[in-house]
Design a protein around this nucleic acid. Sequence first.
DNA 1: CTAAAACCTCAACTAATGTTAAGGTCAAGC
DNA 2: GCTTGACCTTAACATTAGTTGAGGTTTTAG
Lengths: 153, 153
Amino acid sequence: MAEKGVLQRYLSVGEVASRCGIAVSAVHFYERKGLISSIRTDGNQRRFHRGVLRKLAIIKVAQKTGIPLSEIGAALDKLPPNTVPTIKDWEKLSSQWRDDLNERIEQLTRLRDQLGKCIGCGCLSISACPLYNPGDTLGSDGPGARLLELKEE
Amino acid sequence: MAEKGVLQRYLSVGEVASRCGIAVSAVHFYERKGLISSIRTDGNQRRFHRGVLRKLAIIKVAQKTGIPLSEIGAALDKLPPNTVPTIKDWEKLSSQWRDDLNERIEQLTRLRDQLGKCIGCGCLSISACPLYNPGDTLGSDGPGARLLELKEE
DNA sequence: CTAAAACCTCAACTAATGTTAAGGTCAAGC
DNA sequence: GCTTGACCTTAACATTAGTTGAGGTTTTAG
């Protein structure tokens, strides 16, 4: 049947796993979660289209950004299943992700800057720090240490 | 006993929770995990030194950066237990976290830029994209889709 | 043809981070 | 002095992201 070296060859689960640097169990898991899909041989073994490597690469990358699998899956679902997605499809998807990423980056950056200020003034350890409001005694509605919270949550 | 409005007043678990904007169960949880501590009244109720507010603020901030509780706890442990931490103590702690944050931000930024390039060329959907290496057929040691992985892992 | 390696399913387990519920106690106001 | 809200403990549950193991089948190499 399938000749080695032919581009169209399907991949076994083990091949997919080792090529992506993940465990077989993880590949199974992603399939169970609907992030990837496969066909079966007569003997009921999975065979993956090589496009799955692409998807797994996307998954890994997205996970590093902190995007949960459910969201990743939702994004992947928007790619047409068996056809080659158009450039516009992909643009939409990746733009969305880039926006998410930007938001995340901004959030972390704000946090970092806040920390930077704290470092300068010994914040949190010295009650004179502007971030550490001694007005605590005002009660549960007072600002208290909650000033430390950054907006956007 | 304790007069309201006096700075030295101890806080009940409910007060702590509402002032920090977290659930009572979370306060219990953090105490169980050793991140914070309390004393008890004759009636076995928790009473927290107000310094706990500071610690909880630190915990919340650190969590937003993606630092696991175990690490946060380890960091807090390095702060002298009942004394006010020195500015140096705090500087060290927060500098470390800021470095972590910076690393994370850089990682996300690289990813975003990568995505940006993909948007430009229709990457991942079009096999001609430089990121989608058709050399897949080289075998399990070939670069394949793994090119998508960013360095620093 | 046969033995080993790879694969299959299903269920249970891990770990982090909490929440929820059950059953009982404490404290404060009327 | 009783009722109500806040508190106590312990245990179970929820979620995310998988891993591990048992018991059985398929594929492949020699």
